[in-house]
Design a binder for these strands. Structure first.
Length: 248
DNA sequence: GTCGGAACTG
DNA sequence: CAGTTCCGAC
């Protein structure tokens, strides 16, 4: 494969409000199956389910246990893998999931599709899914952003609340402060007297950082609707040669 | 195991 | 609308 084009230097990780709404939070829909899967996957909740070899691919290691967990969440004591998998199959048409043929209990998320469907303003992921890896789901920053306030904030977000997304080519390398003006966004109400974000309902983190009170207990609050970003691979524009950190 | 139709539910 | 329940076909 060799060349992940150096023009795609950054990856955003988004977690918009539709991705997870706890059943107990006011005005929330019921938890959806794929929210739940992402939650377990991110939590590294061993045994029942885990990431597979490819980007977005996951393997159900213990189908009946997963079904039991799902049943508990939904209050369906008679849930089993037969029924759960039917729900999974309904995701094929919705383009949320598809099956990895030949591999038992193995499915794959359509991350870029999920983002595309819900945020049409964002273009789909330009990097072929075969070049992305499951381990890249997560919230950590690289390069100049490492160790910053935002970095620490993102580290504290459970990986389950992050969804991957790739920014398209036209973005040049931006210094940390410039990037903070673009991403990430938190779906908390913007503090009074501050400018609205471009995306409705989302507030740039740069704004939040200036008004920490706006966070109000985040991320442990039940209002976990947030988005963040993730820069990887660690691509650095280099005078002359073009330096590129290798994929781990 | 996997698929998808069909009827049904909150 | 997002499954749940049931099931025959492959």
């Amino acid at each position: 494969m060799g060349s992940i084009s150096s023009s795609y230097w950054t990856r955003a990780v988004l977690f918009p409000d539709w991705a997870y709404k706890p059943a107990w939070s006011p005005g929330s829909r019921q938890v959806q199956l794929w929210h739940f899967l992402l939650e377990l996957l991110g939590r590294g909740e061993g045994g029942a389910i885990g990431w597979g070899m490819e980007w977005g691919e996951f393997v159900i290691r213990d189908p009946e246990r997963l079904a039991r967990l799902w049943g508990e969440r939904k209050g369906k004591p008679h849930m089993n893998y037969d029924k759960l998998s039917r729900a999974l199959r309904y995701y094929y048409n919705k383009r949320i999931l598809h099956k990895t043929k030949g591999k038992r209990f193995t499915y794959k998320f359509n991350f870029s599709k999920l983002i595309l469907v819900n945020y049409p303003a964002f273009p789909p992921c330009p990097i072929p899914s075969s070049q992305l890896r499951p381990s890249e789901v997560g919230g950590s920053l690289c390069g100049t952003d490492r160790g910053t306030t935002m970095d620490r904030a993102l580290q504290s977000i459970p990986h389950s609340f992050l969804l991957p997304y790739c920014l398209p080519k036209p973005l040049p390398f931006l210094p940390s402060h410039a990037l903070q003006n673009q991403l990430p966004y938190l779906s908390v109400p913007p503090p009074p007297g501050t400018s609205q974000s471009g995306l409705t309902g989302l507030t740039p983190v740069s704004t939040i950082l200036n008004f920490p009170s706006a966070l109000n207990g985040w991320p442990t609050s039940t209002e976990r609707r947030l988005s963040s970003y993730h820069t990887t691979p660690h691509m650095v524009e280099e005078k002359g040669e073009g330096k590129r950190e290798d994929w781990k």
